[in-house]
Design a protein around this nucleic acid. Sequence first.
DNA 1: AACGTAATCGGACTCTTGGTCCGCTTGAGC
DNA 2: GCTCAAGCGGACCAAGAGTCCGATTACGTT
Lengths: 194, 194
Amino acid sequence: MAQHRTERADAARNRRAVLRATEQLLHEGGGEHVSIDRVAALAGVGKGTVFRRFGSRAGLLQALLEERSRDLRDGIADGPPPLGPGAPVRDRLLAFLDGLGAIAEGNAVLLSAHEQACAEDKYGDPSYRSWHGHLRGLLGEARPDLDADFLAHALLAVFDGDLIRHMTPPGDPRRFTRSVQHMATALLDGPGQP
Amino acid sequence: MAQHRTERADAARNRRAVLRATEQLLHEGGGEHVSIDRVAALAGVGKGTVFRRFGSRAGLLQALLEERSRDLRDGIADGPPPLGPGAPVRDRLLAFLDGLGAIAEGNAVLLSAHEQACAEDKYGDPSYRSWHGHLRGLLGEARPDLDADFLAHALLAVFDGDLIRHMTPPGDPRRFTRSVQHMATALLDGPGQP
DNA sequence: AACGTAATCGGACTCTTGGTCCGCTTGAGC
DNA sequence: GCTCAAGCGGACCAAGAGTCCGATTACGTT
């Protein structure tokens, strides 16, 4: 994120403070509880600083999400199988859904807030495009007869913060992920195009 | 909608005016172009009138959506097959998806706006609950071995205004519906629970 | 160590929007 | 006509996103 040369020390410190404040507010109240004013106050910086750093509310939430999902992205690109390259497509798909599901289950509130903030440009969001591209690739490889592009969107549509909270019972935090994986295998093993 | 006895003539006239103004604004600009002030101004009524009638921005959009989908709901409850009762489950499911798809394709902007306005309570919305209940019933009947509740949510998750606009090419307005139907049959015909 | 400067900071300010309030108006039953 | 509750409307409020610019400060240079 060093734009020209290096980032000034105070700038780096402030960015970390803002991100930490955001996640704290997200954790305390709902996503709508996170206003820029509050974030700035809690982080001990001015409002302008938040905007210079992250551009907008959407940018702030997106940065947080990106931070939480960096490991998964790296694992996909060059990590060990089955998440990384080399494993059978089906295993890679299930490993990916497992990883994304874990992130989603652990950050449902952040997901909702991000979705709401991005509003009109959800499908242009870099994270979304990345997940979609990966999914489409795997699906297309496994089942060239299906509409991989649409199915990738359909699978991702299910990763909705509200839905996850709505569907996750207290005693079974991975239920959502299992359901998604089961649906994906049903699609993979389903009948072909007539 | 007559709360006690009958609705005063001016009240009814104003409600129609507000709804018509809303759909006009929705049609002209994007969903975020529809502010209550603008709606009230275009309808020629005061802001308070809009709120008394519809309660909130979400209520206004929901009322419009409900108006657009009333026929489908009636058709499901007591219309002729295959939409109404009596046809094989599979045919009813496809007919329902066809009807809902048509509504969604024709009101993508309204869908987006409604979704954004409802925000935190999408799953409590009467329309949503109604569609979900119907879908869950059909899926559960056809495939008692699957998680009908989750799959109903998953199918509905795909009815996203932005996604529909993003996926509907100019020359093929029903493409989205066909994709959804195809996905649904893949799920119906897929393998059972291991 | 002192300096120059460009990056950074911060909070006052603007603008828009959802929602509330309350005194005034009016439709409709008698 | 008369009454009066239902309905009206727009001033008002609070909150939040995003902008601006004078003050501040980190840091490479000398």
